[in-house]
Design a binder for these strands. Sequence first.
DNA 1: AACACGCTCAACCGCAACGTG
DNA 2: ACACGTTGCGGTTGAGCGTGT
Length: 443
Amino acid sequence: MGRSPCCEKVGLKKGPWTPEEDQKLLAYIEEHGHGSWRALPVKAGLLRCGKSCRLRWTNYLRPDIKRGKFSLQEEQTIIQLHALLGNRWSAIATHLPRRTDNEIKNYWNTHLKKRLAKMGIDPVTHKPKTDALCLVDGQSKNAATLSHMAQWESARLEAEARLVRESKLRSASTNHSNSNNNKNNYSKLLQPPLSFSATQIQQQQPKDCSGLPLCLDVLKVWQGGWQNKIMRCNGQDLAMLESPTSTLSFGGDNNSSLPNPAAVGFGGENPAAGNEFVENQMMLGPSDEKEEYLPSLCDQDEGLKCGGVYSFLQQALRRSSSQNFPLTANEEEEKEEVTRKLAGNRLEKVDGLFTSLQDMVFPADNSGDFKAGSGFNMEGFMSGDLLVVLADAHSEPENRLQSSNDQISGENARANTTEEDHKSYWNNIFNLVNSPPAASPIF
DNA sequence: AACACGCTCAACCGCAACGTG
DNA sequence: ACACGTTGCGGTTGAGCGTGT
């Protein structure tokens, strides 16, 4: 394969560009477009190779480039996307409008990577280093916790990214499909994160997928707990890594007859959905669709994917079972509230899946009497969210939406805060992964 | 003032993917 | 299917600059 000659081979100039060269390149492209980069230098009167011209244009001269300090939001975006995508700078750059991949790469290498390393987090794996700061501080437990958190966070980001990507892909197709197709599409969204093997998934495959909304909400609960713990491990230094609680619940789209998760939070095809988080903390769509499509989740091998979500959750729960974080006074109050509710009659009505979840939460004592500190440590939960789970688990499908809305507007102030976090986080994720790539060069 | 060192980031290099005939 | 040219991408380099001694 022929390689285009390097600059030195044909006597072309290398190194920093002069203002005159910039002006020539700019003027030419503004008038003619870049066309063939290889041919451009001669036409523009530049003693540069086409590659050099292209780089100068894309990384510096393009009028839509934003220069200067990265905002905190941009930093968070880069870190999150790097956790998702690794060193795929161009992919990351498509979600940071007006920033070039080169600039992001440089910023990562010179700032963010070092900052993460200082915090004891491996910038490659995004996992805490076991011998890093936390250990130095004598907080080995927190270091281990961070490691688990990072594993979860990594897997979660991966799963979320896929969900969003696939939702986006299906969003277009579902606009032209019937509801049966949408059921299948929806089921396909429920693939487990790549981090979990098929064997793992099969081992945990639930018999009854009717509790899937519960699974998804518990994921949200779990994430909520973790985020707080991340914050606590290393104080303010870790704040930049915080992402508000994730929820894999899907809201129905009021403007669609389909229980289509792809409609959640996406701009583009559905202006009504825009970038707003759908309030309903339920995956169910309009009530006449619920019963029809939920069973399809268990059809054929789609149940496996349902099980993947379940396995994902279970692993996370188990991983954290040994963690022990101090609770805030507010959390202590909530914990007591949850304890009281869990110990009550409500557990009697749970379906098979929730029973399984109960086994995870109370592995040692399955009597139904909750004992704080037995087995799974409830301190990882934000109990306000757990209440949502319980409410949804015990509600009839047509009532679940209401129960969630009640929760959102209910007496628990922190639950409201959490919901706000959910909105913000999902808006961010949807915006990030789903937004059209940053404006391309104008030519 | 002079030097060493570290940091930043524009620019380069080389590979891979893509497009075309 | 293949060869070849073009473009995109990610890793790396090194000039310029700031800071510390």
